[in-house]
Design a protein around this nucleic acid. Structure first.
Length: 823
DNA sequence: GGTCCCTAGATACC
DNA sequence: ACAGGTATCTAGGGACC
């Protein structure tokens, strides 16, 4: 019997000392299937150059004799083969050393301190990754499989009997087949509790949302108006049991929550432990397992637990408008939907009539999570397919893991042996080597300009890596006759160049694939602009842009200070060259940052500009490409606060359709109060639309009057700042630290990541410091007129008006006039 | 108590 | 530790008068 099958999750177990993989997935017909499979277990010993046959044979004999008894497990070297391989692009002779159990490879490696062996590699990938590489049963790709059905078999300790799947198959044959549509079964969940710390208070309710399925399980508010999605149970224990029952009945591919790694799942587990309920969510009846890293991670056997927040953090946060990654804001941005209104309070304070609202609130959180999962699914799918790690990992990993896994899964094509993870000592050496000099930013001349053009390089770092074959493996020890040469790089007081082979390296070659995906999704977005094509385009832009960061990241297997420095040196060179080239054509260049150039049309037509672009492109090497970002009707650049220089990374533009683009200004910074941000935003828009400052000046007069008359709402003057580390670690006591202390005193939870909200009030006495005037939002007080005028409004608008030679200081402060008016 | 300079800290840009 | 460097800006911290 042949079955079309899509792998979703991977797990492994030991049976009689050997490793077996469980691949959980679906058949085309929607049946949940568990494949049992195994693969060769081995690692590599790279031999020193120039060993003769006898030396190699006697080495192999020695290695074959290795037998270990580790952790009660007998393991041995089963087989050794001599193979021609490559390591970092160089030809090497290597021994492929087969062993019984993957977990023992480290111990065998430790026994291999022979002089003939130069390096030992390929033992630190993790068994699942090793398996996927070995067998090429890639996640979320379709296969036609054949095998022995184990449902009633005694094999593997009767695994087929106790696994909660439709079919359990011992894999015999498989073949990759063409892609089919796959709509995963998704179940979203969310809990409401009386506690904030994990397991502290009771769980009041849990909501579950799947396709055509909505449920709130609760043991509270029985008297309340009964909605048909509400299911009442006896108590909290029964709630937990019912939750498990529904999850098992629905048997989803994905169980998804929002911040559920950090809250919902550990909370459920903790309460279940306290109440003696087994949270047997796994297909093998196992309970969720938590691993502690920087972030806690909750894993369920056979169901992929996806904390959407984690995926959004890595894949989208840099491209989002939302200022926080709260469910509400993210849902707003991607779904145009919000959380329902409900003011959280302890269950003892909830009135009878309010429970219905609470249930609805709880349900809607799961609805939002479910819908968000569906929105992001195409991206999660694409990332998983291209990176080839299980969805569970993809949904949680950082960018370095994305890049690295992409490479590791494709080394075989190049006959490459994988590099190992750096050791602790190597990491600290890398950290101490000194920063790589970064990109070039052109200082703008402050002013307001008309008819602007923005050019930018397409995936600049990536195209440089590809075009100049830059990587650790292609770095040459010294200059060769025919090689790529980096621009001069300053090292201390020295200048140096690095040289790279022209023989294509596996790393730059592999990058091409990412680069092409990026191109494909970008044009897809252009043809069909919507939130999702945009998100996907941005996601791959991010992956593509992360590769040079990966090379410079000290934890990377393929870290290279030399390659990283060279990439940045090329980035600087090409941007500066392009600036000069555009100047030479008679354009005034206003600004440039890393891979972009802004310049004036200076009377030239758009098609002349496009011709210039073509000309420049024909002169660029390799796959490097400069593209037209857009034409802009008007743009403004200001000075820095001190007024000495043109400010970098701060500008505002209006395009020809009247769309605004604002970068770096207080308007886009969340640590400024809404009032200052709105005022600055309005002023920028007026100025960009009209091309003069008159209206804006009128407006600013009105606003400062309103402030002085205390007519500003509290929510307009709230300042919010994120706590970035534990409260005790702050060396300087800033306003937001003071505010955070106040919150803590009230017994409210704060931790790194919490947004601290406060306002600055009038104070009696001679308190000078801002932090002495900090008040929380519910603390009574009058806002500090002077502070908001001089420290929020004035700095936000002062240097914008300065561009027109207008000094707004007196207009805003206006102290004399106020005194006169008072009489 | 005020001024100057420097640093810590947060956030943005690419 | 979990992609990088460049940059702006505020408020605190400390030296000095």
């Amino acid at each position: 019997m042949k079955i079309s099958f899509i792998p979703i999750d991977y797990d492994y177990f030991d049976f009689q000392g050997r490793n077996y993989v469980k691949v959980i997935g679906r058949s085309k017909e929607g049946k949940k299937i568990c494949l049992i499979d195994s693969c060769d277990v081995y690692f590599w010993a790279i031999l020193k150059d120039g060993l003769n046959e006898n030396e190699i044979n006697s080495l192999i004999e020695k290695i074959l004799g290795i037998q270990l008894d580790v952790k009660g497990r007998k393991t041995k070297v089963e087989k050794v083969e001599l193979v021609d391989k490559k390591f970092l692009g160089k030809d090497v002779k290597a021994l492929k050393i087969f062993a019984t159990n993957y977990k023992d490879l480290h111990d065998i490696v430790d026994e291999l301190g022979f002089d003939e062996i130069e390096k030992r590699r390929g033992y630190d990938l993790g068994f699942v990754t090793h398996y996927i590489i070995e067998k090429k049963i890639n996640p979320l790709c379709w296969y036609e499989i054949e095998g022995e059905i184990l449902d009633n078999s005694l094999e593997f300790g009767e695994i087929g009997k106790y696994l909660d799947v439709d079919l359990c198959i011992k894999l015999k044959n498989y073949e990759k087949i063409e892609e089919k549509k796959f709509s995963p079964k998704v179940l979203a969940y969310d809990i409401e509790t009386d506690g904030i710390k994990i397991g502290e208070g009771e769980i009041l309710m849990v909501s579950l949302v799947s396709e055509n399925f909505k449920k709130v399980i609760t043991w509270k508010g029985k008297e309340s108006l009964k909605e048909d999605y509400v299911e009442h149970v006896k108590d909290e224990s029964e709630l937990l049991e019912k939750f498990v029952e529904y999850v098992r009945k629905i048997s989803p591919d994905f169980l998804t929550g929002y911040f559920s790694d950090g809250f919902d799942l550990p909370y459920l587990k903790s309460r279940a432990d306290k109440l003696g309920v087994k949270l047997s969510l796994g297909i093998d009846d196992s309970q969720p397992k938590f691993s502690r890293g920087k972030m806690m991670t909750g894993k369920i056997n056979g169901i992929v637990h996806v904390d959407l927040l984690r995926f959004i953090q890595t894949a989208y946060s840099q491209y989002m408008k939302s200022e926080t990654l709260s469910l509400n804001e993210v849902a707003n941005e991607f779904l145009g939907d919000s959380k329902k209104d409900f003011e959280h309070k302890h269950s003892s304070e909830i009135k009878k009539g309010e429970w219905g609202i609470y249930f609805d609130y709880n349900l809607h959180d799961s609805v939002l999570t479910y819908n968000l999962f569906q929105k992001f699914w195409p991206d999660l799918l694409e990332f998983t397919r291209i990176i080839r790690e299980p969805v569970f990992e993809i949904s949680r990993a950082g960018l370095s893991k994305y890049v690295e896994s992409y490479m590791l899964h494709r080394l075989e094509k190049f006959n490459e042996i994988p590099e190992k993870r750096p050791t602790y000592n190597e990491i600290s050496e890398r950290k101490h080597r000194g920063k790589v000099k970064g990109a070039f930013v052109l200082e703008p001349t402050p002013g307001i300009y008309e008819d602007l053009v923005f050019f930018d390089f397409t995936s600049m770092h990536t195209s440089i890596i590809i075009s100049f074959n830059l990587s650790r493996g292609t770095l040459l020890e010294k200059k060769k006759k025919d090689c790529y040469e980096s621009p001069e790089i300053e090292i201390g007081n020295d200048k140096k160049r690095f040289y790279f082979s022209k023989e294509p390296g596996f790393f730059p070659e592999l990058l091409k694939e990412i680069f092409n995906k990026r191109k494909q999704f970008k044009s897809e977005y252009k043809n069909e602009p919507n939130k999702i094509t945009k998100a996907r385009s941005n996601a791959f832009k991010l992956l593509s842009a992360s590769v040079h960061g990966y090379i410079g990241f000290f934890g990377a297997r393929y870290y290279s200070w030399e390659a990283s420095s060279s990439i940045l040196a090329f980035v600087r060179k090409f941007n500066i060259d392009a600036i000069e080239r555009i100047k030479k054509e008679g354009h005034q260049v206003i600004y440039g940052d890393t891979d972009s150039i802004a310049f004036l049309r200076n009377g030239k037509s758009k098609s002349e500009v496009k011709d210039l672009l073509k000309k420049i492109n024909s002169e660029l090497p390799g796959i490097m490409e400069l593209e037209l970002e857009d034409f802009y009707k008007r743009g403004i650049w200001v000075t820095t606060r001190t007024g000495e220089f043109g400010a970098k990374k701060k500008y505002a533009l209006i395009d020809e359709e009247g769309k605004f683009k604002i970068r770096g200004f207080e308007t886009v910074r969340r640590d400024w109060c809404a009032l200052a941000r709105e005022v600055q935003n309005k002023i920028l828009l007026m100025i960009l639309k009209e091309g003069n400052e008159e209206k804006a000046l009128e407006y600013i007069k009105k606003v400062s009057k309103k402030i002085k008359e205390r007519k500003i709402d509290l929510k307009e003057i709230v300042i919010q700042t994120q706590l970035k580390k534990p409260l005790g670690e702050y060396r300087s006591i800033t306003p937001h630290v003071v505010a955070a202390r106040k919150i803590k005193e009230r017994g409210m939870p704060i931790s790194p990541g919490t947004l601290i909200k406060y306002y600055i009030s009038e104070t009696e006495g001679k308190k000078k410091l801002v932090r002495d005037k900090v008040k929380l939002l519910d603390e009574e007080g009058k806002y500090n007129i002077e502070y908001y005028l001089e420290k929020q409004i004035l700095p936000a608008v002062e240097n914008i008006f300065q561009v027109f030679g207008v000094d707004v200081k007196d207009i805003i402060k206006d102290k004399k006039q106020r005194t006169l008016g008072d009489f």
